[in-house]
Design a protein around this nucleic acid. Structure first.
Lengths: 139, 139
DNA sequence: CGAAGTGTTCTATCGTGATAGAACAGTAAA
DNA sequence: TTTACTGTTCTATCACGATAGAACACTTCG
């Protein structure tokens, strides 16, 4: 499935779920009309309490991103895509800003910040590649 | 004073204090032997509960960064500088990594991430300039 | 029908961060 | 000594995120 939880993220679990659903909608992984995993199913998959998933889905529903079909499940609304596409960068930018503000107020130079970002970007690329090419070396 | 609290930071107040003390030690703003503000004074200045400052100072003391002089106050230890210089990048890098991981898992391209970072960096530069040259334009 | 799956709602408990307020022991200076 | 600072240690309360377990109304399918 698309979802995963990172306990050291700094974000609450329910918030991580909310954001990942939004991101999945924004990039087309979760198209309108598609059903999200059921509360109990997702809770089991993430090894998380069902009530935590309930809270995430409740927030998403009250934002108009999900809608309930009684007795059946929750699906992505038609309006969700535009909404999530707009919000995607806003959410990421806001978090990024907090980190950069801390770096800046700690007297880190802009170039030091840039190289820190580059370090972590290549690290991300490497681990992504590592997952794609399971056994082989490269290619 | 050097310290300030950002409620929307995602970090607990006591943790923000801990990190800011470490950063101040790392960049020489808070040299060894220097006294940190008293518990009650800092609590008043940050409009925060004294117990919150106590917790931050207790953590810093148990890490060997501050030491108590009974009846007088807390001062920065001799070993603190090396310790904090090492930890500075680690702390910032760890937080940065979490944000970049989220951006990456949301299918944001590396170049989009870079331009997002650049956006926020110039924003930081602007606000820093704005604070330095209060009334005048530049110089 | 009945069983199994939906979402929804409820109470209770726990840990943590924060607040509030009080008390105690030590030091410094008038 | 007295006063006014230090740090330190309590108890109590609150909000919030998370957990646990149960119940209810609805739909789908055999």
């Amino acid at each position: 499935m698309f979802f995963s939880i990172n306990p050291t993220n700094g974000l609450a679990i329910f918030d991580q779920i909310v954001r990942q659903v939004k991101f999945a909608v924004a990039n087309g992984t979760l198209p309108p009309g598609e059903m999200v995993p059921s509360v109990r199913e997702l809770a089991k998959e993430l090894a998380v309490n069902p009530n935590t998933v309930v809270k995430a889905y409740r927030d998403l529903t009250s934002e108009g991103i999900l809608e309930a079909v009684r007795g059946t499940g929750l699906n992505v609304t038609k309006d969700a895509v535009a909404h999530c596409e707009k919000e995607r960068l806003v959410l990421l930018r806001e978090r990024m800003r907090h980190v950069l503000e801390e770096a800046h107020s700690s007297r880190l130079e802009a170039d030091e910040i840039r190289s820190l970002v580059e370090d972590e970007l290549v690290r991300l690329e490497r681990s992504a590649k590592g997952k794609r090419g399971k056994k082989g070396a490269d290619t």
